[in-house]
Amino acid sequence: MAIQFILCFNKQGVVRLVRWFDICQVDSQKPQDMIVQIYRLISSRDHKHQSNFVEFSDSTKLVYKRYAGLYFVMGIDLQDEEPIYLSHIHLFVEVLDAFFGNVCELDIVFSFYRAYMVMDEMFIGGEVQEISKEVLLERLSILDRLN
């Protein structure tokens, strides 16, 4: 039970955030090729009439959600239960939103290292480590001001 990877890309398939927690499990494919396949799979799916879950390979299924022009994707083990990861994504986006102040794709482009700071405060080793938005934001604002 763990996140294998976190991915964020826009509608054109340009990767904005990527974090591999478990690269060995993810077949023998090159990560870049996998990202392309994931993008193709997810962008081909109907936003309105299809679920947020799709099986990707013999070891991985994807939980994803689109927020405006950005897709947030998590790769998880087949035996994992999907819905909690949807909450993971939602919380992550909420924290990004509050941290950047109405976040948009460009925030993530220009301040990519701060977006990764958010990610690191939330996820370690494929597990969520903190789920209180207040605690996260307080912590992040301290780190953000440190020289």
């Binding site: 927020y67 405006a68 022009g69 950005l70 986006v93 909420e94 109405n102 976040v103 948009c104 794709e105």
Partner: peptide, 9 residues
């Protein structure tokens, strides 16, 4: 959230 129309400043 994730407002894509925000000015690109």
């Amino acid at each position: 959230m994730m407002d894509s129309r925000k000015p690109a400043s």
